[in-house]
Simulated scan of single mutants.
Amino acid sequence: MLDVETIETFYGKSQALFGVSLHIGEGEVVTLLGRNGMGKSTTVRSIMGLTPICSGRIVFGGSAIDRLPSHAIARMGIGLVPEGRQIFPNLTVYENMVATAANRLGTTPAYTLDVVLSIFPRLANRLKHYGNQLSGGEQQMLAVARALMTNPKLLILDEATEGLAPLIRREIWRALVLLKNNGHAILVIDKNLDALLQLADRHCIMENGRVVWRGSSAELAGNEALKARYLGV
């Protein structure tokens, strides 16, 4: 579904990514792991066309997307839950959810408003509240819900549960497990390794703008030295 092939990305004259490659197949859940500042969010921004790559190739659904604008990439079927949520504070929950809602790819069954609210029932009671009236956890749920309303083929979450209360984190992870069980492809960044090991099929660890390790949940769970070297605080 998604092939990122040896991409390099710069911020001005400063190089942030060095030959990063990753692959996500149909229905797979893949993680990007690593300490802060290692290039995970830049990889997501490069995939979405927010920070254009300087070399390499990004292919989604068989088509190159690395020269497309962000809105065109989104319309091809990639839904982004960005770091920091970035919901519209002056729109209601309902308006946030329907503002960009679409099913351009004819997804069946579609993520309609009722379906998405069944995944996040907490939002059903907040439909008339404005974005800036929600808690941080509710805003994160809304960010995921808004992305699902575009009926994406691939869902990308940058810092899925960072800074959220344990109860809200559990609701987010429950929703992601449900999406996986429905065959949804997901790329997720988060620091909750225990939850990621239960959710994901494969993992990519990044350090200093490079992918330094790839493997399965079983391989990562049993490698304490690897976790201490690249993921420990």
Rank of each mutant, 00 (worst) to 15 (best):
G79F: 06
L123K: 00
A228S: 14
T42I: 10
T31Y: 11
I156G: 06
R122S: 13
S118F: 01
S135G: 06
G39K: 10
T100D: 13
A165R: 07
T92R: 05
I73P: 02
G84L: 02
S41C: 04
L157A: 12
I24N: 09
L22R: 00
M149N: 08
N151T: 11
T9E: 07
I47W: 00
M141P: 01
L187Y: 02
S41L: 09
V29R: 04
L226E: 10
R104Y: 14
I24L: 15
S216T: 15
A160R: 00
N208W: 11
Q140R: 07
L113G: 10
D190A: 05
S63G: 02
N223D: 15
E219W: 05
L220N: 05
L123F: 12
R210G: 02
R214W: 10
I53C: 07
N125V: 11
V116Y: 00
F88Q: 06
S14T: 15
V29H: 11
A185E: 09
N132M: 13
I172P: 01
I172N: 02
A147H: 05
N132Q: 12
T112E: 05
V93G: 03
G19M: 06
Y111R: 08
T150F: 08
S217C: 05
K40P: 01
G209H: 06
L154H: 01
M1E: 08
I172D: 02
T42Q: 10
K180S: 06
M76L: 15
A225T: 14
R122K: 13
W213K: 04
L167G: 03
R174Y: 12
C54A: 15
E28S: 01
G56Y: 01
D158L: 09
D66S: 12
D66E: 14
V115D: 12
N182D: 14
A221E: 15
I189F: 03
L68K: 13
L220K: 02
L127T: 03
L2R: 02
E207D: 15
K191H: 11
N208T: 13
G25T: 09
N182H: 13
S217N: 03
V29Q: 08
P69L: 04
V233G: 13
S216K: 06
N192G: 05
L127P: 02
N125T: 13
I119Y: 10
G215Y: 08
L17W: 03
V116P: 07
R146I: 04
N182R: 15
C54I: 12
G77P: 03
A218Y: 12
R229A: 14
I78Q: 08
T51M: 14
E28R: 00
V4D: 11
T107G: 06
K180L: 08
G215I: 03
L22N: 09
C204G: 06
L91G: 05
F120P: 01
E8S: 15
K180E: 02
N103P: 08
T51E: 14
S70A: 14
K227Y: 11
R210L: 06
T107D: 13
R126H: 12
S217A: 14
I205R: 03
H203N: 07
